[in-house]
Every structure is written in C-alpha cells, then in structure tokens.
Simulated scan of single mutants.
Amino acid sequence: MQNKNYYILTVGLIIAALILGGFFYQAVKNQNTIKVVGISKKAFTADKLKWALTFETKADQDQLEQGYLEMQKKLSDFKKEIKNVGIETEQFNVQPITVNKEFNYITKNGNSQRVFTGYKLKQYLFLITEDIEAVEDLVLDPLKLYNKDIIIAASNLEYFYSEIDELKKEILAEATVNAQTRAEKMLANTNLKIDKVISMNSGVFQITEPYSTNTSSLGVYNTSSKNKEISVTAHTTFSIK
C-alpha cells in the first residue's frame, strides 16, 4: 500500500514538474521576443467618379400623366446637354420613376383631417466614368445647367480608385518593412538582434482625405475627396537573439 502511494506521489511530482517546466519555458520564450507596430501611409488620386443625381417634380391630384411627361422632358433635356459637353448618355444607369402621394392636414370642426393634395415624382440615375474633369466642370458650376432650365433636385459625387487592391498590398508590405526597421532601432544600443518573424497581423485600412485625423476600428473609406490618403498598421512580433 505504501509503495502504491509512493508511485502515485512520484507520478504527480513528475507531471507537476512538466507543467511548471512548460510555463517556465513559455515565460523565457516570451522574453526573447519584441513586439512593434509598423505603419505606412501613401497619398493617391482617384481615377473613377460616380455621379448620382435625382430629378423630381410635383403633379396635382388629376395631373399624374402630366407629371410623367414633365419627368420625361427633364431627362431628355438633361441627356441632350450632357452629350453637348462630351459625356456619353449611354453610360448613365437610369432608374424607374417613383411616385408618392402627398397630403396636408387641416382642422375641420375641431378635428384634424388628412387631405390628399397631389403627387411627388422622383427619378434617380447615376454615372460611373473616368472622365472626372468633364463631370466636375459641369457639376461644380450649377449655373451651366440652371441656365439651360435643367434643375437637379440632388447631386452627389463619389471618388474611387480602380487599383485599390494593389495599393493595399503595396502599403501593407511597406508597413511590415517599417515594423522591422523600428525593431532594429529599438535594439540598436543593445547586444540583441532580431531573428525571425513570430507573428504578424495587419490593422484595418484607413482611406481618408489628406491630413485627416478620422479613424475607425472598422476602417474608413472616404469617397467624398478626389485626393486621398491610405494608411495601415502591421502588428509584428520578432524573436530576438
């Protein structure tokens, strides 16, 4: 019985030693690493533009057909003027006209009543083009269309870059190099040197207007600016020797 207890105790001590030895090894191992965050930034200019716009008009209760005709004229006049400045109308994605009823509230005999007053018609269309300058010349000077009796209810420009995936790969590689450079500088006044990469994780990409401080844990993609800046971090752990 005593021998049995002795064996159990011995096995327990061996297991405990292995566990403690594993923790000790891990602790020593962790001391032989250095963690740094590399960063890379690059300015670039968009090469594609999305122009989204909306036409709208109103029609009385019994004038819905006239409203449709008015919307057709607005689109026709717009396409004609767009073609005159060298933008192909076939590039536009034109959505169907939407119609919403409009109401007013009146008080009659002390009661509030909803009264049907007519219709509001809207049509949304957008263009994606590389001819950024031609569109900007037209959109950023609204009098050019206004003087042609073309009224746009809403207009919005968004800027994109067709090689964004390649650009992301490029600056991520630069961020990794930057991480290594930072690690080497941190160890410059010691007898230690970096050995190899233990782990590496990239941060999210922040695509902003130039000199912006806007960041997000989910990443940022600013489309309102033609001139942009992209940045990313590389969280890197190196072994040292």
Rank of each mutant, 00 (worst) to 15 (best):
D141S: 15
I82K: 00
D62F: 11
V115Y: 01
K80A: 04
K83A: 08
Y119F: 15
E158I: 11
I82A: 02
I151E: 08
N84Y: 06
T190N: 03
A173N: 11
I128W: 01
F78E: 01
S112G: 04
E90R: 10
T181E: 10
Q66Y: 05
Q66D: 05
F126C: 03
L187D: 04
L121S: 02
L121C: 04
V94A: 00
N109S: 05
G67Y: 06
G86N: 11
D77L: 05
A173F: 09
D60G: 15
M71N: 11
T98N: 05
I132E: 00
Y161I: 02
Q61F: 10
Y119S: 07
T54C: 01
K120F: 01
K108R: 13
T89Y: 15
F78Q: 09
N104A: 13
E133V: 10
F160G: 03
A173R: 08
K169M: 05
D141L: 15
F160C: 01
K80L: 09
L145I: 14
K79F: 15
T181I: 13
A175D: 00
D137F: 03
Y105C: 09
K148V: 11
E81R: 06
A188N: 14
T181K: 12
N147R: 14
M186T: 15
L140I: 12
T98P: 09
K108N: 10
L64R: 13
I97L: 07
T57M: 00
D149V: 09
D149R: 13
I128P: 00
K58P: 02
N189P: 01
N178Q: 12
N104E: 13
L121P: 03
I150R: 05
R182Q: 14
G67Q: 08
A188V: 15
I97Q: 04
K50M: 08
I164N: 06
E174C: 04
A153I: 11
F55E: 00
A59N: 04
I132A: 04
S155Y: 07
P96L: 01
A52T: 11
I150W: 08
Y159R: 10
P96N: 06
Y161K: 14
I97W: 00
Q113Y: 07
L138D: 07
V85H: 04
I150L: 07
A188I: 14
Y159T: 06
W51N: 03
S162M: 13
Q66I: 02
E56Y: 12
Q123P: 09
E174G: 01
E90D: 13
D131F: 02
K79I: 08
K83S: 14
V139F: 02
A153M: 11
P96G: 01
Q66M: 05
T190R: 04
N109Y: 12
A173D: 10
I106N: 02
V94H: 08
L167W: 13
S76F: 13
E65Q: 07
N147A: 08
S162N: 11
T89H: 06
E163P: 02
T181V: 14
D131E: 15
K144A: 04
Y105M: 14
G67H: 01
V177N: 09
Y105P: 05
N147T: 12
L187W: 13
D137G: 07
E133Y: 14
E163R: 12
Y161P: 01
N156F: 07
M186E: 12
V94T: 03
K73S: 05
P96I: 14
N93A: 05
L143T: 15
Q61P: 12
G118K: 06
S112D: 07
L69V: 07
I87A: 09
K122Q: 15
